[in-house]
Write a protein that binds this DNA or RNA. Structure first.
Length: 125
RNA sequence: CGAGCGGGCUGCGCGGCCGCGGCGCAUUUUUGCGACGAGGAAAGUCCGGGCAUCGCAGGGCAGGACGCCUGAUAACGUCAGGUGAAGGCGACUUUAAGGAAAGUGCAACAGAAAUAGACCGCCGCUCACGCGGCAAGGGUGGAAAGGCGAGGUAAGAGCUCACCGACGGGACGGUAACGCCCCGUGCCAUGUAAACCCCGUCCGAUGCAAGGUUGGGCUGUGCUCCUAUGGGUUGCCCGCCCGAGUACAGCCGCGAAUACCGCUUGAGCUUGCCGGUGACGGUAAGCCUAGAUAAAUGACCGCGCUCGACAGAACCCGGCUUAUAGGUCCGCCUCGAAGU
RNA sequence: GCGGGAAUAGCUCAGUGGUAGAGCGUCACCUUGCCAAGGUGAAUGUCGCGGGUUCGAGUCUCGUUUCCCGCU
């Protein structure tokens, strides 16, 4: 599953200015239609030490990757909320829910999620 | 068997599958394959270096750091071995440990008195008031003119003597710190130098966001400060150097907190041998072991167990300090109890 | 990443090594028919935390925690 990383300051300010926002209990996404799939993760110092911050970034990137299969070309910024614990299953479930809610999937008739997420949902974490 | 002391090692493992980072080789333009990919503290940024730029190839003042001795080292505030002191029955541990006889400051309260004296007291003279002698005892304090015993005395006092301590001199051992012995001096005088300070040793400043290359070139119009009351150079002084900053318009290549270099082969790691009590040094062979830049290690499944702590490289090394679930090993180590 | 600084009463700040203070706020009383203003009095600190030096640390010193600022 290919996607690009957002790196330039210009792209960030464009996204923050004109992007649409969607919230859930665990995270906020800011997105804007683009010609390619782009994403970035935003984890500042308030989340904890470097080990904790790295952990959050990895979990978010992996959760995005697992759900980005049928995503329409969109630039997206993922911002988690401060919590005691962070888990992949919860992030993945929330991202999938937000994508459906905001109708960002290319084929809206197919309600299917990746088998990985189904397993995660079964665990009910 | 119990309680300790000192020192070291390790920091979940195996397999499958999807994914990430740079590298190499193919493929030729985005894919495939391959090996590699965080730590003992990567942390705090407390010291010391390398490297780079600036200054100078000059000096002085100020400031800072360190401080028993010898050694190790590129260097250190680090390390090793030793000395003294303090603590512990002991194995052992801790130690910013020069100078108070260069000078200055401070020592609240209490206490008679804080570097200087006599409150209670003791003794002599006197009917008494009082005068004189004394510093043993009491009391205050962190500290009150070495300690303790004997002689001595009116009472006392190193006044005298023995022992211990202090100071001075000498011999011996040791590279030295120092140790030990002998002789002498009755002992002119508290503590604090992590108070100023003195003595000795060392230190130019700034830090990879250092710094370099590209980032256009040319032309025109200007503006600001200025040949010394300015600017730069280290906090200051002497000395030294002299131009600097910026706006607008035009043409071809259009990302600029960017791209590339610095950027990982180095006081490197492993093993053996040699020298040294040791830190460490020498030598031979082998090895290449992260290099990102909105910043790489994650998700899922299966198995095992003690159910996995502290924690993530950002120019690189040597230390220090702080955090750390546990597991495990070593020592003709120490103490206690019981038995032989 | 690199370099600086701060922490004292509820708040804003003082504080030579010797009993921790000021202003505002709080509480009680006086004044008033009542409130405000005014007056009188009182309470309030592990001096961020843990060692060390000292007879004695808010102060000196070492470590540590949290916060703030500067450098592109």
């Amino acid at each position: 599953m290919q996607y690009l990383r957002i790196k330039k300051k210009k792209q960030f300010s464009k996204l923050l200015k004109g992007g649409k926002r969607a919230h859930s209990e665990l995270l906020t996404i800011i997105y804007l239609p683009d010609n390619e799939k782009k994403m970035a993760v935003c984890v500042g110092k308030k989340y904890g030490k470097s080990v904790v911050r790295n952990r959050i970034k990895r979990l978010l990137r992996e959760a995005y990757r697992a759900n980005a299969e049928r995503l329409s070309p969109t630039a997206m910024l993922l911002i988690p909320k401060v919590a005691e614990e962070y888990s992949f299953a919860a992030f993945s479930r929330e991202i999938a829910r937000l994508f459906r809610k905001e109708k960002l999937l290319e084929d809206p008739t197919a309600e299917g999620i990746s088998p990985k997420c189904k397993a995660a949902e079964k665990d009910g974490v």
